[in-house]
Design a protein around this nucleic acid. Structure first.
Length: 406
DNA sequence: TCTGGGGTCCTAGGACCC
DNA sequence: TCTGGGGTCCTAGGACCC
């Protein structure tokens, strides 16, 4: 039995809502937001007007446009969303400091000990909704429950603009006929395996013997069993003691598949520079460099190399990533490339003993210029040649864009 | 119209050491 | 002429989430 009061605040069609708010012409119209608007993009967010046509996020842009030919296409602007996000969380923080930032548009709040100041959890929910609406012109759905799992479920029960509470005593009836895949953490794969066992609803999941689930799913068998019963003991982890990042990476889907080493290595260099820049900006350095390659047939693999020292310089990352790439003899044409650095350390770290101290100075200068004038204003000379080459190869579009985050 | 980009956690197996 | 057991670090890949 859980006596906590947990809220989940989830913004409705967040990116699309922000765009409609900042441009009145978009209001009431189907809006698709994508990260880049190339042929191979997918929908990152869409307005409810677009959802009514059958569009959903994650859908290929081309398919969405077919379903909804009148949709207005917008290239996402991550800093606009990050700013709005901060303002939303700032409002939420007025009700408790036990606030966990779950994603750019979602946060959990534990108001167990503060709710009485505001007349209860329901009133907290109402207050947040009304302030987000009047200050930012956006709607959200809020779920209230004794734990995070049920709060998430509650928030999904009414969209858009919902406020829903699941009390502990309501949990059994809510779960009884709920499809298992609606539970947070059960995706298509696990859902299919459960279905194969004859389990399709959360109610059935809760009645399945724990041992049977453990034999099939290992450690998550326990979690599944408890989820089926509406139990979730995980705490709300406040933003101020959220763990450090584990990895920083960038990937890029080429506008055309290619085997051209100039393009492949050029993109690896560009991605490595981006990763290095972010590492330095956030004061991290890492020891493990991963290369990700997706081929034309969508088969994706990764190879990593752990070094004996920490690095945060784009060229060092590139050296490691391209060395791994050179070992690949796959004849297939490449669709996506990714570079990721993990095994991170924050703050002080041991640089390679042979690093020239002046190199640090140079990197700092480059970062300052790029901060001021935009990404890749200053970049390795070899990349300039790449841009011309991309043009002649018919790789249309902006290859040097900041790719943006969800 | 084929299928983005940024992450997290978990697992199984191998290498290596005592 | 057979073959332990614990621990740690590393790798590759899968599943999941927003």
């Amino acid at each position: 039995m859980d006596n906590r009061k947990i809220l989940l605040v989830d913004m409705n069609a967040f990116f699309a809502g922000v765009e409609q708010q900042s441009n009145p012409h978009l209001r009431g119209k189907p809006v698709l937001v994508g990260g880049g608007v190339g042929k191979r993009s997918v929908v990152a967010a869409c307005s409810y007007e677009a959802k009514w046509c059958g569009v959903s996020s994650g859908m290929p842009l081309m398919k969405a446009l077919k379903l909804c030919p009148d949709a207005i296409l917008i290239e996402g602007n991550s800093s606009k969303y990050t700013d709005t996000s901060k303002r939303i969380f700032k409002i939420c923080r007025d009700y408790t400091d036990r606030l966990e930032i779950y994603s750019i548009d979602e946060c959990f709040m534990d108001v167990t000990s503060t709710q009485s100041l505001f007349g209860g959890a329901w009133e907290v929910g109402r207050g947040i909704k009304s302030r987000i609406r009047t200050k930012l012109g956006l709607t959200c759905s809020i779920g209230i429950a004794p734990n995070k799992m049920l709060a998430k479920l509650a928030s999904n029960m009414k969209k858009p603009d919902g406020l829903t509470e699941i009390k502990w005593s309501d949990a059994p009836s809510v779960l009884e006929n709920l499809p298992v895949t609606k539970l947070h953490g059960i995706g298509d794969r696990t859902g299919a395996q459960l279905a194969y066992m004859g389990i399709t609803t959360a109610g059935q999941l809760g009645r399945t013997p724990r041992d049977k689930l453990k034999r099939k799913f290992g450690i998550i068998g326990d979690v599944l069993h408890e989820m089926g019963q509406g139990i979730d003991r995980s705490p709300v982890v406040p933003y101020y003691d959220s763990p450090d990042m584990k990895s920083i990476g960038h990937s890029y889907t080429l506008s055309k598949n290619t085997r051209d080493p100039d393009i492949i290595y050029g993109q690896l260099q560009r991605l490595s520079e981006k990763v290095g820049r972010r590492l330095r900006a956030e004061n991290y350095a890492g020891k493990t460099v991963s290369l990700v390659v997706r081929y034309e047939d969508m088969h994706t693999f990764s190879r990593r190399k752990t070094l004996s020292y920490y690095l945060d310089d784009g060229y060092d990352i590139y050296k490691a990533a391209s060395a791994i790439m050179r070992e690949q003899k796959d004849p297939r044409s490449v669709r996506l490339l990714g570079v990721c650095v993990s095994n991170l350390t924050k703050g002080m770290y041991q640089l390679d003993l042979f690093t020239n101290p002046r190199k640090k100075e140079l990197m700092k200068t480059v970062d300052t210029l790029n901060d001021k004038y935009g990404e890749f204003t200053v970049r390795p000379a070899s990349m300039v040649g790449l841009e011309a080459r991309l043009k002649t190869h018919g790789f249309a579009g902006k290859h040097y864009d900041d790719s943006w985050e969800t």
